[in-house]
């Protein structure tokens, strides 16, 4: 009962958080100079006063700010994120169109980084002052210190441009290619390699550091000493006993990192013309497509909040001692 109660509290707070996200973003974006009428006039190569006024009226931009805000928030809670100014299509529809491309890029990068990073980290932790450990630390630092868009540009020029020409230059698949599903999948994978390599460098750095540190922590713990004292081989100690606890923080972090991942995706998608939410968000800023931008911000907040609640629930199920919803 108490369990359900506190879950209810979490959900309620999640809703309050979403409301706050909506109000803050809406206010911020509406404070910026210029509005969609300017954009539409701009791409049309000019517009008359009457046209600008009619555009503003059509989008309700001539109404007082608080009215616009109330009507927007009201609609969102009925599941309506509004219409994109630019495409005149429902924002939710446009988001779902792009979501899969971003998820493909982000999740592939994340999993690659987690597996490879944990592997390197665990390896390095076994001998914290050895060559391999230093190498992993250095590798992590290199990955972490490179500006992600710069890495992308360099890879593009070195590997995708003639004369090397190993990878496609832009996009997610080649429309001109006709072939079966299998060819399509291969084609997507081919397009995916460079963006994933670029995006995963940061996370590879992050997870190898995290798992190295966490493994070092765990390897110093009493129960590991006990295991060693029992005369178990180092391999068994590390992989059977320490690893399970050592990778726990890695897993926890992975679930909570969507908002960070999304930031990297904006840059990588821009470099590789990847048709995902990141480029959509960036373009929407340039087009001052307020409903679109608000929709994306809302959506990413929603995903993080839901992920938080789910993590919370699973924590409770695993470990009944946790009482409050606060995590550190």
């Amino acid at each position: 009962m108490q369990f359900l109660n506190s879950i209810g509290q979490r959900v309620l707070f999640g809703l309050v958080l979403l409301l706050a996200v909506l109000v803050l973003n809406f206010t911020l974006i509406h404070m910026a100079p210029g509005d969609p009428a300017d954009v539409i006039a701009g791409e049309m190569g000019g517009a008359t006063e009457e046209m600008m006024a009619s555009i503003r009226k059509a989008y309700g931009l001539d109404r007082p700010f608080h009215e616009q805000l109330f009507s927007y928030v009201g609609k969102v809670f009925q599941g309506d994120l509004g219409y994109s100014y630019y495409f005149d299509q429902p924002v939710t529809e446009l988001i779902f169109e792009r979501l899969s491309a971003t998820l493909l890029l982000v999740l592939t990068s994340l999993f690659l980084a987690i597996f490879l990073g944990t592997f390197l980290g665990v390896f390095a932790s076994q001998n914290p002052n050895g060559m391999l450990s230093h190498f992993v630390t250095l590798l992590a630092l290199l990955g972490y210190s490179l500006p992600v868009f710069w890495t992308g540009i360099m890879l593009l020029i070195l590997l995708a441009a003639p004369p090397v020409d190993l990878f496609p230059i832009a996009g997610m698949y080649d429309v001109t290619k006709d072939g079966g599903t299998f060819d399509y999948i291969l084609d997507v994978l081919h397009h995916l390699i460079l963006p994933v390599v670029t995006l995963s460098t940061i996370y590879l750095a992050f997870y190898s550091r995290l798992s190295r540190a966490s493994m070092l922590d765990v390897l110093g713990a009493d129960y590991i000493r006990t295991a060693r004292a029992k005369g178990l081989s180092e391999r068994v100690v590390v992989y059977k006993h320490a690893l399970r606890n050592g990778v726990l923080p890695v897993v926890t972090f992975a679930g909570l990192q969507f908002s960070q991942l999304f930031s990297g995706a904006v840059l990588v998608e821009t470099v590789f013309s990847w048709p995902g939410l990141g480029t959509l968000a960036f373009d929407s800023i340039g087009r001052r497509d307020t409903p679109m931008l608000l929709g994306i911000l809302f959506f990413s907040a929603l995903i993080v909040i839901v992920a938080n609640i789910l993590t919370d629930i699973s924590y409770r199920l695993i470990d009944p001692r946790i009482k409050t919803g606060m995590k550190t």
């Binding site: 707070f13 958080l17 706050a20 996200v21 973003n25 911020l28 974006i29 404070m31 910026a32 909570l256 908002s259 960070q260 999304f262 930031s263 990297g264 904006v266 840059l267 968000a281 960036f282 800023i285 931008l293 994306i296 911000l297 990413s300 907040a301 993080v304 909040i305 938080n308 606060m326």
Partner: peptide, 23 residues
Amino acid sequence: LMRITEFFQVLPPLLLAMVLVLL
């Protein structure tokens, strides 16, 4: 304070910074 922190954590940092700089 932690609720405020959580609020800032759910927003994609780069996008939020872009909006702020734009503003």
